[in-house]
Design a protein around this nucleic acid. Structure first.
Lengths: 194, 194
DNA sequence: CCGACACTAGACAGGTCTGTCTGTTATCGT
DNA sequence: ACGATAACAGACAGACCTGTCTAGTGTCGG
């Protein structure tokens, strides 16, 4: 595990450089569109290192998506923990989304994008399902804390807002949908908790 | 134009068979994933015919997306025209979406899917922008007819619901999000017109 | 000092993809 | 009847992609 530990050594390991390069290229241009050669060139590593670390391109895609999921989770949880009031905690999820959508490198949901490029039933679907289940559960818990009468129904609505503004921000190349979604989420929350 | 006219001859032309095959394969597996050979094999057509009709794979992708846009437009308009009351007309858009999401071949938004596989700035983005602009405008008009105080704001919300349930139904492999979106749209409409 | 280890550089094989080209067949308008 | 047009079948070139393999380099613990 010494090689996988991040950030402690002086220079990043081949694995970390690979993951960083894959993240940038895969997210910006698609997991299928970007070839192995582009990734190793940007990472400045040998091809053998890639296959030694990840086994295959599919393995690299899996690691890329799991890393995306981990960072998204941390980012959303940080936005939730920033508040104490249950209402603000739930809306924190949409604050995090609005931040992400405002980033110029934002290109929508990495899982959906990878899913659109891959055959169903593979690693992409597996990681995507896990990521969506986590999000839905978080929203359900937050809805319950916020006093919603039917937390799962409210969470289902919130998921639609989350997915919709993510997709819309990508397709329209504008973060406007994310702030609309936040406003809408607040209104729905107030209606559901009343 | 005799060859391009649809449905009048006894057997479909090579162009129509190509478009049908491309539609099924591209939508089910992705425009980049599916190669030319698979398309011509399913269409039962020579490769030269494809290049004679569409010029390039990019041309075929454009025709595929434009055809998708046309059929989606017709389907949604039919669902709208089915009603007279302004409220029902707007909700008809979501009825059409629920029908489409219930189809076992449903795989989400063809434009988003193609966009996730393609470099930005190409034909995919062009057709996608047109399709989204049409949808937004339709929803704005319907919102105005339905007496919304701020038709554009309501349309922006409706677009989020539409995008969100489309994406959610694909990723969850379930049409549940589409009926949730319809319910939500009804509630928002009533709130915005009050 | 030395052996293990991680990494680099790059050639190579085998496959797939787009797009072109040659040559043949069938249908239709005049 | 006949020329034009559309379509068919399939070989081919050139590019690209994944994954393997050989061989060399540097570093570190003991």
């Amino acid at each position: 595990m010494s090689s996988a530990s991040p950030g402690s050594g002086r220079k990043p390991s081949a694995r970390d450089r690979l993951l960083t390069a894959a993240d940038e290229l895969f997210y910006a241009e698609g997991v299928h569109t970007v070839g192995i050669d582009r990734v190793i060139e940007r990472a400045g590593v040998a091809k053998a290192s890639l296959y030694s670390c990840f086994g295959s391109k599919d393995g690299l895609i899996r690691a890329y998506l799991e890393d995306r999921h981990r960072r998204r989770r941390e980012r959303i949880l940080a936005a939730v923990e920033r508040h104490e009031a249950p209402r603000d905690r739930l809306l924190g999820v949409f604050d995090a989304l609005a931040e992400m959508a405002a980033d110029p490198t934002f290109r929508g949901c990495a899982f959906y994008n990878a899913s659109a490029e891959s055959a169903p039933g593979g690693v992409v679907q597996e990681v995507s399902d896990a990521s969506r289940a986590w999000t839905r559960r978080l929203l359900t818990d937050l809805a319950r804390e916020a006093g919603a009468k039917d937390p799962e129904a409210l969470a289902a609505q919130m998921v639609i807002l989350y997915d919709g503004s993510t997709a819309g921000a990508r397709m329209d190349r504008s973060p406007a949908a994310a702030v609309t979604a936040r406003t809408l989420a607040a209104a729905l929350l107030d209606a559901a908790a009343a």
